[in-house]
Design a protein around this nucleic acid. Sequence first.
DNA 1: ATGGTCGGCAACCGA
Length: 256
Amino acid sequence: MKIATFNANSLRARIDIVVDWLNQNKPDILCIQETKVQDHEFPYDQLDTTGYNYIFKGQKSYNGVAILSRHKIENASFGFDAEPYDKPRLARASIKGINIVNTYVPQGRDIESEHYQYKLQWFQRLKDLFDKNFKPADPVIWLGDINVAPTDIDVYEPQTKLTNPCFHEDVKKQFQDTIKWGFTDIFRLHNKNPEMYTFWDYRLPNSCKRNLGWRLDHILATKPLVKKSTACYIDKTPRLLDKPSDHTFLIAEFDV
DNA sequence: ATGGTCGGCAACCGA
């Protein structure tokens, strides 16, 4: 079972990249964030050429999530239980008995802003969602653009990022607290090297070539899947194109 | 010092 995540920063702008990548890599599941497309404008036609099943929820200009799968998608739902009309940043489904939780965690903007408090609360709501819907002994995958670099080796010049909403101590604590519910960072399980990133800021000149990046996209799994985890790696394909993306694909493989 | 470039969408916002 090959499961991947990708922040598309507009699915319509990168539909060709996504379709080509699906055809070449044939993941069982691809979770997408920042689709930036309303449901009635979703790029059905191109995606249908792949034969993948999919569920999605979007809005104009911002946010939006999708789950694509070669297998049957069951129990699809969006948002938190208590707030189904929240911004489209969370998609859930079960696929071949595996519970998938695809999240686009709010960025937070500034640690002094209310948006940062909203981000911190978002992790608590997510932990509640895990508590109410699953047990740590269930097979659960939590993945997506989580907008946190967990440790010093997950961002360039970490000492200069202490007041950044993706690296501030409070957000790192919230992320760890949510992980403690029962998850393992699957990328770190397989790779201990520093400076392995999934995001490079457009605004920094040659940020990818200079490897000035962040590890913000994550795949986490509960114990039954950790045991079956065989690999996790970053695919920089979207960075190598004429029109590069700021995020890359992150892929995890499981022996199930 | 707090820059820069994208995408959406038609003036700026969000990342």
